[in-house]
Design a protein around this nucleic acid. Structure first.
Lengths: 144, 144
DNA sequence: AAATATGTTACTCTTACTGTAACAATTAAA
DNA sequence: TTTAATTGTTACAGTAAGAGTAACATATTT
């Protein structure tokens, strides 16, 4: 991956929004509770908003509000919202041996090979919901 | 990860060694057939040699020679030989909210959460052998 | 109009990796 | 014993991605 700080920062923010639902929270407030920089949170949450996981509103009384049940928010959705890369990523743009040499087309093959691993990771992430995470952390979910 | 160039370069080199077995091949020769820089290959193969997957010898007539059956060489072994990082890696050294705040210990939890994914990836990689890769590429295995 | 938000862009710092070069150590052959 | 070939290791520059931060346009409420 790596399962970057971006993912954990996003999860922290979403947990906080689930706890404080239905009060919209500003990036500043989320920052204070999670320790993640407010500007970074806006970057992440604006991407997550495009996946309809949160709703965002500008202006006074604006902020971020969860728009899905934490039971139905899966790690994979969050990950895909904030990363363009695949979790198990292989850079296949590199050269592949000298031209004209009759060496096999590794590049093409590796894509297929690793896609199987990719599918597994995605399935695993699909099976972990925000509410699973919160239960494990003994957090109270206030959504609905 | 990312399942970096290092892994694919290593696999290319090992495939070549399986094809040309039992003739020891120099980093220069492997470089010519794979397009990977010879110096880089020496770095990778010297690490792989420590895992007893290949044998290396210095001097004239030296070079690299496969020391295991490609059927028993798994992607996971190769990966672990050349990478210190876990495949599904999470940096947990980052701060975790302001001190004194009673926010849950995400950092600790994420480790456990992602370790499950880690195990899956490793298992997947354990199930892919060098000979599987070579068969898919229609390469002839000359080991033994 | 003023205050409070998000959305977006840009900039710096750091980290990791790639590609490459250099050279010591080792081995075989001439 | 000298020479050539080869690995092992270290170092270095260039590149790419991410983290953290700041700045400001845009939008919304009071």
């Amino acid at each position: 991956m790596s399962a970057s700080t971006k993912l954990s920062s996003s999860v922290k923010a979403l947990c906080f929004l689930a706890e404080t639902y239905p009060i919209p929270k500003s990036s500043k407030e989320i920052a204070e509770h999670t320790g993640v920089n407010a500007s970074k949170l806006r970057q992440l949450l604006s991407m997550i908003a495009k996946s309809k996981i949160v709703n965002s509103e500008q202006g006074t009384k604006g902020g971020f509000l969860l728009s899905k049940d934490p039971k139905t928010i899966h790690l994979q959705e969050i990950y895909c919202s904030i990363e363009d890369r695949k979790a198990f990523h292989l850079d296949v743009t590199k050269n592949n041996g000298k031209k004209g040499k009759k060496n096999p087309d590794y590049t093409k093959y590796f894509l297929g090979l690793f896609s199987e691993i990719q599918v597994d990771i995605e399935n695993k992430m699909k099976n972990i919901s925000l509410s699973d995470i919160m239960k494990n952390l003994n957090m109270k979910i206030n959504y609905k």
